[in-house]
Simulated scan of single mutants.
Amino acid sequence: MTTENGLYPYKPSRPGTVIFAIAFGTSAAIHLYQMIRGRAWFYSSFTVGAVMMAAGYAARYVSTRSPADLGPFIAQSLFIILPPSLYAATIYMIYGRLVIFVNAAEASIIRPIYVTKIFVCGDVLAFVLQAAGGGMMAQVNLGDLGQKRLRHSSARTSVPQYGRHAWTALLKLMLGAAVVIILRCVFRIVEFAQGHAGYLASHEVYMYLFDTLPMLGVQLLFHFVRADSVFGANQVEKLGDRDSIIHLYERR
């Protein structure tokens, strides 16, 4: 049922859509450049998510011009809701490679070669159900346990540093991003539970505060501490195949 603002329970901000379409679009272009330059193809899902975010706010701008038109309204909703699942998928892939890189598979409850398969499959299901929070929360728990278990590993002091950043900086970034994504998912769950006419859904400011800004923050953080800046340009592709696991385990 439409209102005087079309399909929206409020008058959507047109300047807000333009600002964040440009911000997410610029970030997406930089992520694409960084991914190609570093040949870090496991950032593909993150980059696609960044492009979707930009497309979502562009579609939202179109929707504000015709607020009663169902097509742009559905497009902006889906493109804004779904990308965090793609961000999480990238975190899973980096986590598996990071465990291999620090030569401490025993510190991870789940073997690194299975991390991506297990959690990405869960993320696909969450993508379909639009309830990705559970899978992301599992990632944070695993990362936290792995960090504690690594302190007791004999290999933790022999991890080399090939790039500009230490592996601990990447781990902290991943954990921080995962927490932000979880909090954003909690907001969306509460919003959906209240319904289209609920308090959160009927006030646009909360979407920008608890969804737009946090997700833009996640995108921006991943510009500064990149996996290829930790693993080293020559190590990125090796960490993706099984043969390199044997090679890395011989570094002792």
Rank of each mutant, 00 (worst) to 15 (best):
P83N: 03
M93N: 14
F224A: 01
T17D: 08
I74W: 07
F20D: 02
L173F: 04
M52I: 07
F119G: 02
E237K: 14
G71M: 06
I245G: 00
V120D: 08
T157L: 06
M207H: 11
F24E: 02
A68F: 02
I74H: 11
F231K: 03
L221F: 05
Q76E: 12
R164W: 04
R60H: 08
S202P: 07
F224H: 05
P83Y: 02
C185A: 15
G163Q: 00
Y114W: 14
P72N: 04
R151S: 08
A131M: 15
M137G: 15
L125F: 13
V230G: 01
D123K: 09
Q194D: 13
F42Q: 11
L213C: 07
H223S: 03
F46K: 00
I74Q: 12
T3A: 08
M1I: 11
K117E: 09
G217E: 05
L98S: 12
A75N: 06
A105N: 12
Y206Q: 02
A155K: 11
Q147C: 04
A40L: 02
A28P: 05
A29H: 01
G143F: 05
I245T: 06
Y61N: 06
L70W: 09
Q147N: 10
Y92Q: 13
G56M: 02
P15Q: 04
A59N: 03
V102T: 14
F119Q: 05
T17I: 05
N141S: 15
M137V: 14
L248T: 01
S27L: 12
A227N: 00
I113A: 12
I22E: 01
V120T: 14
P67G: 07
R37W: 04
P12M: 00
L125V: 15
I74N: 11
M35R: 07
L129K: 10
L145V: 03
I118R: 06
V48P: 00
E191Q: 14
S63A: 15
S153C: 10
A107H: 01
L78Y: 09
Q139M: 15
Q194P: 09
S202V: 02
L209F: 01
S77Q: 13
S13K: 02
S108L: 04
M35W: 06
Y57R: 05
P15M: 00
L7Q: 08
G163E: 02
